[in-house]
């Protein structure tokens, strides 16, 4: 592990970049103390996130113990390939987020921002896959098909074949909204309650994380450059948040997709 040695520099127009001029809040003794405080604060916040999701995981455990077959059946409607792909997408985004911090620490602004963009794209991809490939077909029976292979066929289609309808596939809705006809266990609707709440809460966190990263990206734009070797607290915070979102998915994925 290397440590930071930074070369001060000026940005366009001869102004000093934001990370050079940054002044820590006056009630801290040093900038490092502030950085440390922010990090500890963030970790405390992450602890609360862990315990927020603990509710979901405890719900999962209790219901899986009470209704094992409902969970086995429910899970069997999930395609591990989409879950797996989303895992890979999130892991890559975590890596690019970590690399972005690394680049900021070395004052490679362009590379750092590029990594932020990749992270954002991965986050968007994750949400898109969730929605188009999982939520919408399962809830409504409308499958998303970018190849449009069903256009003109006998299946109902929408948007010129971008979506096609499969009779009897949809209706896997949570709780009392459940209307899927082929359930084989009376508690299968409880599985879907859990599935949508758990993944939905997680997806909401993905969106919040993306907003934080977008904010970092905006304040690191040329001419502002708020983050650099001397000061990258904001990136670090957004990164930590992003990783905890990844962390929760690492557990959700096998628990939801790999039961049999």
């Amino acid at each position: 592990m290397s440590t930071i040695d930074f070369k001060p520099g000026l940005i366009q127009g001869g102004r000093a970049p934001g990370y050079e001029t940054y002044k820590h809040a006056s009630h801290f003794r040093t900038k490092d103390e502030e950085f440390d405080a922010c990090k500890t604060g963030m970790w405390l916040f992450l602890a609360t996130e862990v315990l927020l999701f603990a509710g979901i995981f405890v719900w999962y455990s209790i219901y899986r113990m009470m209704y094992p077959d409902a969970f086995r059946n429910g899970s069997s409607y999930l395609d591990w390939r989409w879950g797996g792909l989303n895992t890979v997408v999130l892991l890559i985004s975590s890596y690019t987020m970590a690399m972005s911090i690394n680049h900021f620490q070395h004052n490679r602004q362009k590379e750092a921002r590029r990594n932020l963009v990749i992270t954002l794209v991965c986050g968007a991809l994750f949400v898109a896959i969730k929605l188009l490939m999982e939520y919408i077909p399962k809830m409504t029976g409308w499958h998303f098909d970018p190849t449009m292979s069903h256009a003109g066929g006998e299946a109902l289609t929408k948007f010129g074949g971008l979506f096609y309808f499969e009779q009897g596939y949809g209706g896997k809705l949570p709780g009392i909204l459940f209307s899927y006809p082929f359930a084989t266990d009376p508690h299968e609707n409880m599985w879907w309650s859990l599935y949508y709440t758990g993944t939905g809460l997680h997806a909401a966190h993905v969106l919040i994380g993306m907003a934080l990263i977008a904010r970092v990206w905006w304040f690191s734009r040329p001419g502002v450059e708020n983050y650099g070797p001397k000061h990258y607290t904001g990136v670090e915070m957004a990164g930590l948040y992003w990783h905890i979102v990844d962390l929760i998915w690492i557990f959700l994925f096998p628990l939801l997709y790999l039961i049999h």
Binding site: M1, D32, E33, D36
Partner: peptide, 18 residues
């Protein structure tokens, strides 16, 4: 260590990340 580790923020190397 707070008062002392100025300029000692750790950089996790690109290799480690990979």
């Amino acid at each position: 260590a707070a008062g002392h580790h100025a300029h000692k923020h750790v950089i996790v190397s690109a290799f480690t990340n990979r």
